[in-house]
Simulated assay, not measured.
Amino acid sequence: MNHFVTSELSTRCAESVAHSRSLDGVFAADLAERLTAFTLDGGSRIRPRFLWWAMRACGGTDPEVSAALRLAAALELIQSCALVHDDVMDRSTVRRSRPSFHAQIELQYFAIAPRPGSGPSSFAQSAAVLAGDLALSWADDLVAGADLDPVTRTDVLRIWRNMRTEMIAGQYLDLHGQATSSRSAARAIRTVCLKTARYTVEQPVALGAALARADEATTRALTAAGRCAGIAFQLRDDLAGAFGDSEVTGKPVGDDIRAGKATYLLALAHSRARAAGDTYVIDLLSEAGGGSDVSMPVLSSIREALLSTGAAAQVERRIARLVSASERHLAAAGLHGPAAQRLSELLAQVAAPARGSAAVSTGCLGGTR
């Protein structure tokens, strides 16, 4: 299935690049062609897979395939928009074990890579913002051009509009949490739901159900299953960001801690340290967010605190509860057959530790993703 999505994506991006070349060669080479390479090279295609197997599980057949592949390609492009913009906002220089988009621009024009945490030049940053905007424009064009009957089109456009706004709202809450040093666990979960869960799992599943013209009860059960799995996915990613292997995650370990991200994991650690009156851990966790100057010894101590407070173990328990809830909601949809089984496996897979790694537990810093 991934092959067909990549083929569709390659075809549609090639059309957009050709138009970009007709406008200006520099623009095409620097942004359009680089954006195409960024989108095609890497990524798990997880959002297209949720759309595809939800459609198939709900009875979607060959007539829906063309529209499904087009929407799947659009999901990959909106993901590129999110990643390019996210790396600018987080001043992250690495993505998928390679220079991030703005770092590539910096290397091209200034022959240097920005130091971690230092941020790109204003030119590289602005170029990356435009590239993210371009990805979103291409995605919207694909959705607008999908061959859909009027009723399905109305449903698909409603889901797509909601998803775009939810994603931006979640990104803003993420920034707001950093700026205000939020330590609210409830706010962290709200951010996770909007920034990741809905556009990674819930809304792709909803798009698949809409393409298959699933009834309201089935769609409601599927989207609830997707929301639970999506939240679990981001909580697992937070653990990987703190304890993982950069060769697996494709990002420097500890980036979220250095950036002072208002993650559920850090919020729990603060809460537990306050409840225990552990001023050492409270002060230590307050050092998170200092940027690239957070030393490796301090980072290691913060990671130990995430374990010693029991925060990491509590996140693991919440992931397990969310996975169980996702399974219950999926069962309530009453879907059967091989496609329903594939969807079930996919929902469980997104919250599982990466292959070859263990769940994070007290005394173990080896959990990876």
Rank of each mutant, 00 (worst) to 15 (best):
A135S: 06
W53H: 14
V201S: 06
W52L: 15
R161Y: 04
T152F: 03
Q178W: 00
R369Y: 11
R96P: 06
A29Q: 15
A57E: 09
R95C: 10
V5S: 08
E216W: 03
A311M: 06
P150Y: 04
S324Q: 14
C13M: 15
R98D: 06
G244V: 01
S246P: 15
S118R: 07
V94W: 02
Q234K: 11
A73V: 01
P63M: 08
G260E: 08
A128Q: 02
I319C: 07
D24Y: 03
W138Q: 09
T11Y: 10
S182C: 12
L83D: 12
Y172R: 07
V248H: 12
A333V: 04
A214F: 08
F27T: 05
S118E: 14
F243W: 05
A312N: 01
R236G: 05
V323D: 14
A240S: 13
E8W: 01
A111L: 05
L83V: 11
G230Q: 02
A210P: 03
A131E: 01
A320K: 06
V360M: 07
R328F: 02
V323F: 00
E287W: 01
A325D: 14
L306G: 12
Q171N: 08
A68W: 00
A359G: 08
E345G: 13
G177Y: 00
R190F: 00
L136M: 11
R70N: 09
L142Y: 05
G363P: 05
E33A: 12
L284P: 04
S344M: 01
T11L: 13
A348S: 13
F27P: 04
L75E: 04
L235G: 09
L239W: 03
R49C: 02
E166N: 08
Y280L: 10
F38N: 02
G254H: 09
L268K: 11
A359T: 08
S20F: 11
S344H: 13
I319M: 04
L346Q: 15
A311K: 01
F233S: 06
L136F: 00
V88P: 02
S295I: 06
S10N: 15
H329V: 02
A267Y: 03
N2E: 15
A339N: 02
V88K: 00
